[in-house]
């Protein structure tokens, strides 16, 4: 059946709207659900309160959030937010700094062992982290890194380096390196040229790598539960999985949902502000890497 041009346009536009609706529904429904759940009252949850939205009388208003952020009982969770932010930030900064050096060398310099670096990075990106927690736990308890911030920062750095190196070297390849040579002609050493000319140009790529690295560290669970045991270093995902409410036998679903929302807010903020960069970084790192 042939469609006239106008009708065809309309069908295409309708299909587009439907497609967009499906994508948005897919992405946002579970998020809306967890927000909705966080407004169910704890009593309603204990007695069972099926349904997407809080039942009438089963709503909690902001109570769950208030408890979570101010009640003494949940000081551990608040501490884990601090841990997660601190550990993820430090790991991100250090990892990106080190990756920047390596990526510069890979994108810019010709040297023996480049293949080795790239291959190592590739293998580590595929590494099953669970197979490392045993020996790492054993090493950490001997060195005294168990249940400390550095005890998590170090593995996070190692496992985010491949992603950071790929993303950065992909970005660095796009940089007009002639400018560096121009600077060198003007008498700057290679190191000065790198620092004064290239670093500012590379900043957007570095920033993208930083966001992706932060996502990884923020999301990690295996190291978080295996290499910590108290609030001294326990990050948010581990803290959520051990979450205890007033009823010691059941997970306090609605309170946990509130915690989950709190843990997701920083990510949503990052995504909102840096959407374009993240998309560019993901595709650059993975497809071109």
């Amino acid at each position: 059946m042939a469609l006239t041009g106008k009708n065809k346009d309309r069908v295409q536009r309708g299909g587009m709207v439907l497609g967009v609706a499906l994508v948005l529904g897919w992405c946002l429904l579970p998020v809306v659900w967890i927000i909705s759940l966080s407004f169910k009252s704890q009593a309603a949850v204990t007695n069972g309160s099926p349904g997407f939205f809080p039942s009438s009388g089963g709503g909690a208003g902001w109570d769950n959030y208030r408890d979570l952020l101010f009640d003494d009982q949940y000081a551990q969770f608040r501490r884990s937010i601090l841990n997660s932010i601190g550990i993820s930030l430090i790991a991100t900064i250090l990892s990106v700094a080190i990756a920047t050096l390596a990526a510069y060398a890979i994108a810019r310099l010709d040297f023996k062992g480049k293949k080795f670096v790239l291959t190592t990075a590739l293998v580590i990106a595929m590494f099953p982290v669970v197979s490392l927690v045993g020996p790492l736990f054993d090493m950490w308890r001997t060195i005294g890194l168990y249940d400390t911030w550095p005890g998590l920062i170090i593995p996070y750095m190692s496992f985010t380096l491949p992603l950071a190196i790929w993303t950065l070297s992909a970005f660095f390849r796009e940089i007009p390196w002639e400018m560096e040579q121009a600077a060198q002609v003007d008498g700057a050493t290679q190191w000065q040229a790198f620092r004064k000319v290239i670093v500012p140009l590379a900043a957007p790529g570095v920033f993208t790598a930083a966001i992706l690295t932060f996502f990884f560290a923020w999301n990690d669970f295996v190291f978080g539960i295996s290499l910590t045991s108290t609030e001294a270093a326990r990050p948010i995902p581990a803290s959520l999985s051990f979450f205890v409410g007033n009823d010691p036998f059941n997970r306090p679903a609605s309170l946990l949902a509130a915690g989950a929302v709190v843990a997701t807010v920083p990510i949503v903020i990052l995504v909102l502000f840096f959407q374009r960069k993240i998309v560019a970084g993901l595709t650059a790192g993975a497809v071109k890497g």
Binding site: R78, R79, I81, L82, I85, G86, L89, I90, I93
Partner: peptide, 24 residues
């Protein structure tokens, strides 16, 4: 001994300490 962030965006640090003043 606890390790503190040695460097980082100041704004984030400020926001963090505001949210977590009590914990800190």
């Amino acid at each position: 001994m606890r390790v503190r962030p040695t460097a980082g965006p100041r704004q984030l640090a400020v926001a963090t300490s505001l949210v977590l003043a009590g914990t800190l």
